[in-house]
Design a protein around this nucleic acid. Structure first.
Lengths: 207, 207
DNA sequence: CTCGAAATGGATCGTGCATTCCACTCTAAC
DNA sequence: GTTAGAGTGGAATGCACGATCCATTTCGAG
C-alpha cells in the first residue's frame, strides 16, 4: 500500500517528514499539470529539497509517481469516510459535496486518482495496478454502504451491491472527466443524479 | 473541425495523403502509448515520412495532437452512426458493441477521445476545447435518439434528453476508464447496464 | 516547356530534464 | 564522544527529443 524508498531503507523522523513533503508537493503538481508535465525539478523546488534527496527517497521518477498514486488513493478514500453511503440522504449529501468541490476547483484536475489512471494505464503497468488497487478500496467503501442499505430492506434483493457500487463509481469518474474537459459541472450532476435516481427507484420509491 | 497545417498551405492530393498518413500513425501510437510517450520520431517512423514532412504539415507537436483529437472525434462519432439510440434494443446493441470492442483490445486504451481529454485537459487548453467539441457532437447524436424516443411517447415527458444523454456518455466514459485501469470489462458493463436500466424504467416499464 | 511552389530527405542543433556523483552535515545508538 | 549510516547540497553528466535548415525532387498550372 505504501511505496518504499530504494531497498526499504530505514527512515528517521526527519526523513519521514522530508519524504512526505516530497510526496505532497509532487501530488499537488501532478494534479495540476499532469504526470508528464511535472518535472523532477518542479517537485524539487516545490518541496524545497535538493535533487539528491529526491533520489535518496525514491529510486526514480516512476517510484515517486507510485507513491503519489498511493497517497492520492489514501486521501480520496479517507475523505469519503465522513459520508454515509447507506441512505439516500447520505448519497445525496455526497453528491452535493463532490459537485461543490469541483466548482471550487473551477472544474479543473478531474479525479485525483482517475486522472492518474488515464495517464498511466498504458505507460506504467505497475502504476496501473496501484490505481486499480485504489479504486478497489474506494468501491469497497461504497459497496459497504449499499450492502447495509440492502440489509435494511431498502434495496431490492435482486440488486448486486458490488455491481451497483461499480456503476456509481463509473458514473462519478465519467462525470468528473466530462466536467474537467467541459469546465462545467453539468455532466457530473447529470451522471450522479441519474445514478441516484436509479438507486432511489431500486429502493422501492418510483418517482 | 480540422486543424490546418502551418498557415493553411494549399495541399496537393499527394500532400493530403501524406498528411493523413501522419495523423493516422500518430493517432494509433497515441492511443496505445499516450501523448507524452509518443515522440515525433515514433510518428515519423510509423508514418514512414521524414521529420521535415512532419513540420511541413504541422506547426509543431501540439498542432499534430490537435489534428489527432479531431480525427479521433470524427472516427468515434462517425462509428456510432450505425446505431439507433431511439430504441431500447438499439441502445442494447450499442452496449454490446462497445463492450465487445473493449474485450478485443484486452481492455486497453480506454476511450480514444476521453483518454485524450484526461491527458490534455490541464496541459493544453486548445486541445481541451477540441475534445470538448468532440464530446458535444457525440452527445448530440445520443440526444437525437433519446429525443425521438420521447417524441414517440416512450420516455416520460419530464425527462430531459440532453441531461440523460450527458449521463449516458458519462457512464460510458467512466466505465471505459475503470475498465482500462482494471483490465476487466465488468465496470463498463455495470455502468452501461445501470444507465440502460434507468432508461428502461423511464420509458414506462419497471422491471 | 518551364517556373514557382509543394513535397521530401536527412543531417544538425539546442536544450530540457532525469539521473549521477561526491563532498559535507546531522542524528542517534552504544 | 565516537562512529556508522541517514540526510542534505549542488554541481555535472548525458541523452532523448523537439525543432530547424538546406538541398533536392516532384507536381501542376499556364
Amino acid at each position: 500500500m505504501n511505496a518504499t524508498g530504494p531497498s526499504a531503507r530505514p527512515l528517521t523522523r526527519k526523513g519521514q517528514e522530508t519524504r512526505q513533503r516530497i510526496v505532497d508537493a509532487a501530488a499537488g503538481l501532478i494534479f495540476r499539470q499532469g504526470v508528464a508535465n511535472t518535472t523532477i525539478e518542479d517537485v524539487r523546488a516545490a518541496a524545497d529539497v535538493s535533487s539528491s534527496q529526491l533520489y535518496h527517497y525514491f529510486e526514480d521518477k516512476t517510484a515517486l509517481v507510485w507513491a503519489v498514486v498511493d497517497h492520492q488513493a489514501d486521501t480520496m478514500v479517507g475523505g469519503q469516510e465522513m459520508f454515509d453511503f447507506s441512505t439516500l440522504d447520505g448519497l445525496r449529501a455526497w453528491r452535493d459535496f463532490v459537485i461543490a468541490a469541483q466548482r471550487e476547483h473551477h472544474c479543473s484536475g478531474g479525479c485525483p486518482i482517475g486522472s492518474l489512471g488515464g495517464q498511466l494505464a498504458e505507460t506504467d503497468p505497475d502504476a496501473r495496478a496501484h490505481v486499480a488497487e485504489g479504486f478497489k478500496r474506494w468501491e469497497a467503501t461504497i459497496q459497504g454502504g449499499l450492502r447495509e442499505m440492502q440489509a435494511r430492506g431498502e434495496l431490492t434483493p435482486d440488486t448486486d451491491p458490488a455491481t451497483l457500487a461499480l456503476a456509481l463509481l463509473a458514473a462519478l469518474q465519467g462525470g468528473l472527466l466530462l466536467t474537467q474537459v467541459k469546465r462545467d459541472t453539468k455532466p457530473l450532476e447529470a451522471a450522479l443524479d441519474a445514478m441516484l435516481e436509479l438507486i432511489a427507484r431500486l429502493s422501492g420509491g418510483n418517482s
